[in-house]
Amino acid sequence: MLSLPRYRIESRKTKALLRSIIKYLIVIVVAVIPLIPVWIMYLWLIMQSFSPKVNLGIIPLGFTLNNWRFLWSPLKMGLKTYPNIWPITINTLLIALGVSGIVVLISTLGGYALSRMEFAGRTGMMKFIIALHAFPSVILLIALFIILNKLGLYGKGYVTLLGITLVKAGLEIPMASWIIKGFFDAIPWDVEWAALVDGCTRWRLWRSIVLPLVLPGIGAISIFSFLSGWSEFLLVFTYVKDEAYYTLPVLIYHMIGEYKMVDWGLLAALGLFFTIPTIIFFSTSQKLLLRIYVGGVKG
């Protein structure tokens, strides 16, 4: 190879350089360009919410906090006054925390059983979980209504929200169990056996050895289920009739839905307010979430 003439090596170098430039260009076209509209949307949201008027959607003309007035005064839309934002935020938070609490508790137990224990119908159950996920909750609305009604979990303020939390958690648990099962699978049997030999009971083993090793997984499913509870719209929209028990997504819907005159500035501010938990979670737990695809134990 060393005996190649100098000019040929030069031309190969140029070719290699060209090739890598083309590679980068392809990456830019495929990955960066599709992101531009998304960034523009976010920019629009921010500009719109802090400025009385904008040009071309994203160039602000002046600064105002008027659009954020809902934080300290009742929310008025046309002739109608909606409840204060804070109780509604708390409603949303209750559902989100409730969902993630229930999901974490049940999925970590269920996922462990799916991963580690032999029982009749285990494989069938796992297939069924995936199948379950194919059905949207819309088709369950009527059946769920009847069930909630019979259980006395409908039309009674916070009790209704509890009912919704249970339903939402129920819908989230299968997938969360499936995700956390992957984390349990990644723990070698040896580690569990070692703990049993060291003197653990099965419960102690689960608590002291297994759970700490799937913490990234628990983090992931709690964030996912929290956000899914936070942004739940359909169930609240269908089952909650009393405005005092609205949640943020439903409130935002009403901001658009009821009048022809839409206050875009207010809507943008509400939208940003709604995304705050999402932004907090993703910026603090990015590494955790990425590990879902990398998997559990690191030796």
């Binding site: 040896d190 580690v191 049993l196 030999v197 090793l213």
Partner: peptide, 20 residues
């Protein structure tokens, strides 16, 4: 008897240390 009541010590091929 379950393992915990046998008073045995065991070393595994993978060592099986508790990573955390």
């Amino acid at each position: 008897l379950p393992p915990k009541d046998r008073n045995i010590g065991m070393v595994f091929q993978s060592y099986a240390l508790y990573p955390h």
